[in-house]
Design a protein around this nucleic acid. Structure first.
Lengths: 337, 337
DNA sequence: TAGTTTTGATAAATCGGTTTAGTAAATGAC
DNA sequence: GTCATTTACTAAACCGATTTATCAAAACTA
């Protein structure tokens, strides 16, 4: 069964393919009712579906965008992607999904691939290692929206959460609950702009409350070494009484580790995580988290991207910062007022 | 900054674009070392990236596949998508992601869109409402792999879990723990083939153990009515002592509802869910679940699809059924042996 | 030396649409 | 009745690659 092309429709309807093309693009002005009906019938009859690849080639427009996230498995990335896909679908775009695994080479390969595929734009939570490429090259050729990342000194559309304020509020809450020794847990060695902001919020909250910062309380962990690191920390003279997990991966690792060690939350240690996940309130100790408006952020990122794609020149770049919401549950203690 | 085309490379290198094309496709046989080097240099210098849209048009191959899932937010869909994307990326394909929300019209629109975009194949967890279309039309034109769905009487590649056996094992486990009144909770009214299989496993387990089936214990719930339905059930003469949640959505709703009603797990009622999610073992009562090999299923689905895309004729269709694994935790009681 | 084969490269057709410039027929103006 | 305008439609160029058929020059054969 050969594919039906426009020329087949044209022949059967007894018109030229130009006319069929006009019909498809709804340029009915100079078309007789009769011709219009005939073309419509033939399209129905043959089940003709125009080839977007050919169309894209001519129009230099693919109606496709790429989204590069570290890992679709992270609750943040999943929810954001869903927001992006929803907005895109409603506006006639499809979404190619790319998982960079925070690997700069993989990210670079994806960027190249998306360019070759002639996507109309890219939404990216970048690793930070390809910033030069993005700044020097991509942004000049292709609409780009940064997601959950900030580039210093750069004019670019961007969507992120106010991580500093979110962390500030979380840490302030802990301090208000009487905590002074607050541990920050960061996965592996990778520091992106969001994590830097959260640490800034942590610092600011300590400072505002006149608490000295102890560098020992900022720890980078992996699945392999978390147990020993936590052990070490709880063995020092002045152990932490609260833990701030800087992302959902850290949260899961910390909770798993504490459970293994039978350290009770919040009796032995208070915990605050980042990103509300579906089961956060069903945990042994329902988890207090700094929530983000993930789905809305995805929608907004797609909105900014498509706006820049469709409106030829917008000079002002939009930096859309969403507030974080502290969702207080029992994991950081019961407030006694 | 205009885009560099093959013709620009050809001009600068002093050859024809045919030769550049040969170079790109690694057909070096009749090409002098010198020409080859010169082309390579010019490509580097100009930063030429071939336009895949043009290439796709000529070759009738886009190196792009579509995946249609109900909702990327479900842990099953997320993990499967990640598996699909990984395999595709390694084999030079990109993935367009589509969320059908179990809405047949939306699904239909996505199928059409993917066809127009000339994707090389589709992986789909179908709603079941477009089966005729898929059977009659799509499968003839396009490689297709069913994911977590079974079509009766149909030759097609397919990847799924052995839901019947998984449910059978789960229910048998509950029975062994002394439960006879086991409630099955199903979200909304939608019954796809996977859910049918799980119910079959439930039925079989009851029958094998000589327990009469009570239709009242099969309930369809939504977020709105779950509270009243659960209330009703626990008010009957012979209330259920265990709950089998047929998917992760049902699981979350049931757990939330039980928590609200302060019904204790497993003391008041035992619970088994489907799909292991990251926090399942961190819950107030760590959840026993029927686990699926989600990531591997995604990889396998992509493998089958790409095989069918790249090998012209494979007559035998592969139906790859993954086993389920019962992961026993405390939510269905402590075994006293 | 003339004819054949090999080597290295190219012109032109093609993929399936969109669009511009153009044309023939019908209508309107005077 | 003639010329200008409008209406309905089409031919052909184009988008940027791939590929086939072809060709010129060099190398080989007899």
């Amino acid at each position: 069964m050969e594919k039906i092309r426009m020329i087949d429709v044209a022949n059967k309807a007894g018109v030229s393919k130009s006319t069929v093309s006009q019909y498809l693009n709804k340029r009915y002005e100079f078309m007789s009712k009769d011709t219009r009906q005939r073309i419509s019938d033939v399209i129905q009859e043959l089940g003709f579906k125009p080839n977007s690849v050919a169309r894209s080639l001519k129009l230099k427009k693919t109606n496709t965008v790429g989204i590069i996230v570290p890992n679709i498995n992270y609750s943040f990335s999943t929810a954001v992607s869903r927001g992006v896909e929803d907005y895109c679908q409603k506006h006639g775009y499809s979404v190619i999904i790319c998982n960079s695994d925070d690997n700069p080479e993989k990210e670079h390969a994806y960027i190249q691939m998306l360019q070759m595929k002639q996507v109309d734009g890219i939404i990216i939570s970048s690793t930070g290692q390809n910033n030069e490429l993005l700044k020097e090259e991509i942004i000049r050729e292709l609409p780009l929206v940064l997601l959950d990342r900030i580039f210093e000194d750069m004019e670019i559309d961007l969507v992120c959460s106010d991580h500093r304020a979110g962390a500030f509020e979380a840490i302030s809450h802990l301090i208000k609950m009487g905590h002074k020794r607050i541990l920050v847990v960061i996965p592996d060695e990778h520091l992106n702009s969001s994590r830097v902001s959260r640490i800034k919020g942590y610092d600011d909250a300590l400072e505002k409350n006149g608490i000295d910062k102890d560098e020992k309380l900022i720890v980078y962990v992996s699945e392999d070494n978390i147990d020993s690191k936590i052990d070490d920390l709880f063995r020092i003279d002045d152990p932490p009484t609260a833990i701030f997990c800087i992302n959902d991966l850290a949260t899961l690792e910390v909770l798993t580790c504490l459970k293994r060690k039978k350290i009770k939350i919040p009796e032995d240690v208070a915990v605050i995580g980042v990103d509300d996940f579906p089961a956060a309130n069903l945990l042994e100790s329902p988890l207090t988290v700094v929530g983000q408006h993930t789905y809305e952020m995805g929608m907004k990122a797609a909105e900014l991207l498509i706006r820049r794609i469709e409106e030829k020149k917008i000079d002002k770049y939009v930096q859309h910062v969403f507030p974080c919401e502290l969702i207080v549950r029992e994991s950081c203690g019961f407030k006694n007022e």
